[in-house]
Design a protein around this nucleic acid. Structure first.
Lengths: 188, 188
DNA sequence: GTCTATAAGGAGATAGAC
DNA sequence: GTCTATCTCCTTATAGAC
């Protein structure tokens, strides 16, 4: 209860780095405990299985992701800038990670289809993200040729498409172009 | 040279099914040889490593994918129908696979970043796909508020975004909505 | 060219000492 | 609650008989 750099926190910290960089399936328990400097028994004291660790990983990075995104968006005053800031935020993430794409999407691709708890968590995360886009658009004037719901969906899908294509292309150009396209539409 | 259901073909057939359904990393050599009904030595006679098998897998599914896509598109006369057919084609694939997303994207997410041969093959595949969209749009009247290159990019990114979000959502609704949105834009 | 047998190592998970 | 030691199974890959 007193010192907070607990064993559990160290396991999660190491997992956050390795699950993203190497992928969940290519990251073994043995590597996690080695880099965290703890014993195998300690890991299984805090997490009863690797999949339970994965769920804790997802919860942890979601908290961090939304708080970091919200902090970034609050720097923008106008809703137009917030909307375009969504692209900047993802571009920054792409460049910092070496174009690894979205952490959540990555897990959704890696796990088997019967990991329903994992998959529905990720689906829920994307729904929350879509809600953020919705909220930004609610405060804006939109192009006359698009419904708000359609424009919101378009932004979401372009960001996710650009993010995932950036993995194989090793590039954030797709996100940059998306930003320009959406920005151009706003002026019509 | 005579009978074509060779050992090599059987290995590739089984790999095509398992690499997609289970993922590349979760599919072991042992399972492949078991389901192909061949011995381990035979596999390593035809492919010198699992990664070489992966490259052959990618080349094989790309040939099949483009020929199947082109056959589908040729059923459509008008370029507008071809464009919307791109969405139908992906929706059909999503439903047939149980919402597993794009085979190529899946591999790009699974492999380490230093698998440059694999990643650049996939980037090349997506570039060819983008070229197909370009060609369709070249024969069409486009919305006045969008450059051809931008509209093409938008279509590509929405398809890829919808496809990858469909994995966690277990749905092809994202593709259906994308189709409707693009279809709506064409009437403006 | 296909086979069996084996190597060498890593996976996830558990038992039990302290 | 953390540790060491171990279990069972599976991984990719190779050697060598046929």
């Amino acid at each position: 209860m007193s010192m907070k750099e607990s064993v559990r926190d160290r396991i999660l910290q190491v997992s956050e780095r390795l699950f993203y960089k190497q992928g969940y399936n290519l990251t073994g328990i043995n590597q996690i405990i080695a880099e965290a400097g703890i014993a195998k028994g300690s890991l299984y004291n805090h997490f009863k299985s690797k999949e339970e660790l994965l769920m804790s990983y997802l919860e942890s990075i979601e908290k961090e992701w939304f708080s970091s995104l919200n902090a970034f968006l609050e720097q923008q005053k106008k809703p137009e800038d917030k909307l375009l800031g969504l692209f900047d935020f993802r571009m920054k993430a792409q460049m910092n990670s070496g174009f690894l794409g979205c952490r959540f999407v990555k897990v959704s691709v890696e796990v088997p289809k019967d990991s329903s708890e994992v998959l529905s968590f990720i689906a829920g995360h994307k729904k929350k993200y879509a809600g953020i886009i919705d909220n930004i658009l609610s405060e804006m004037d939109l192009p006359v040729f698009l419904q708000k719901e359609d424009f919101s969906m378009m932004v979401l899908l372009m960001i996710e498409g650009a993010s995932v294509l950036g993995i194989s292309a090793n590039s954030s150009l797709q996100l940059e172009r998306s930003k320009q396209i959406i920005s151009g539409l706003l002026k019509k």
